[in-house]
Amino acid sequence: MKIGRMEFTMLVSGLILMASHTGALGADQREVTQGGFAWQDGAEVYTKVCALCHDTKVGPILRGRDLDPLYIKLIVRNGSRAMPAFRAAEIDDQLLEKLAEYVSKTGSDK
């Protein structure tokens, strides 16, 4: 692998720059984020969780099939065959409603 001199210099100075602006959790435990984590909506859950299997041929395609939201909620909470169950601690009931609605009503990308 040949990398030019310029790139190396940039890499090193980039690292220095990055490092000097990084905060850290010291003894006073400064937090990087404000408050804990919360999903924004059903679409975000789908994209960041469901899609990783259901849009990659690991699991069946879900969107565009007009699936019954009740069915979707049931499968999410109980799992199905190799699909794990998702507990309320991860996706609460309110969000699950939104997720089921999103999956049911949205068309397939393809």
Binding site: V12, L15, I16, M18, A19, S20
Partner: peptide, 12 residues
């Protein structure tokens, strides 16, 4: 130290 740290962490 500011120059050394990134060279250490990156393994250079």
């Amino acid at each position: 130290v500011e120059i050394m740290r990134p060279l250490r962490i990156s393994g250079v």
